[in-house]
């Protein structure tokens, strides 16, 4: 598969949310080892798509960019899930938002590792200050929640998320929260 980590798909799909003008993007990672299912979802309140566009985005030849004729992000994400005995679901409503969910069989030999989700979220947050992000990261029922709205409340006006000290804090906070849930095992 083209993306060596699932976290890179998350980054890629979330870029679509940002292009769609989303104010809130929720990223859900939920691994349930007893059921052997890993769920990854990106839910946004961006501009959404009409039915015709919703069908077209599954084609590699759909893109909103003007620099080349292929998009590939969504088709790769779908293919990756389906190759691991998983499912892919895209729901979108014009004016409401889009939600994309991929599931994987955790034990499937072709399943890429979740990868560096802390770095993915940190980069999204740091580069898109006007968008609020929520990460809900769950392994076997234990959850870590990261929410930029909370951070912005603490920081108040006047201090950007891109302040060097704040950026450092965000990354460490994410890393530690995720590591604690992982408990030493990276899925």
């Amino acid at each position: 598969m083209i993306m060596p980590e699932l976290a890179m798909h998350v980054l890629d799909i979330a870029q679509n949310s940002i292009s769609a003008g989303a104010k809130h993007v929720k990223i859900v990672i939920d691994a349930d080892r007893t059921r052997n299912i890993l769920t990854i979802a990106v839910v946004d309140d961006g501009c959404g798509m009409d039915d015709e566009m919703e069908k077209r985005v599954l084609s590699p030849f759909t893109t909103s960019r003007t620099t080349r004729k292929v998009g590939l992000g969504i088709p790769f994400f779908k293919l990756g899930a389906e190759c691991c005995d998983g499912n892919f679901e895209l729901k979108s409503e014009k004016g409401i938002g889009t939600s994309i969910t991929a599931t994987y069989s955790i034990s499937h030999i072709d399943r890429p590792p979740i990868g560096d989700i802390a770095e993915t979220i940190a980069m999204l947050v740091i580069c898109n200050e006007k968008t609020d992000f929520v990460l809900s990261y769950t392994i076997d029922g234990k959850t870590f929640i990261f929410d930029t709205e909370q951070i912005k409340i603490v920081l108040g006006d006047g201090i950007p998320l891109t302040d060097p000290d704040v950026m450092g804090w965000i990354r460490d906070y994410l890393c530690q929260g995720i590591e604690e849930i992982n408990g030493g095992i990276d899925l």
């Binding site: 993306m3 890179m8 980054l11 870029q15």
Partner: peptide, 14 residues
Amino acid sequence: MATCGIAAGARPVL
């Protein structure tokens, strides 16, 4: 940071 950039390793660079 489009699909092409991410696939080529843009995230660790950023």
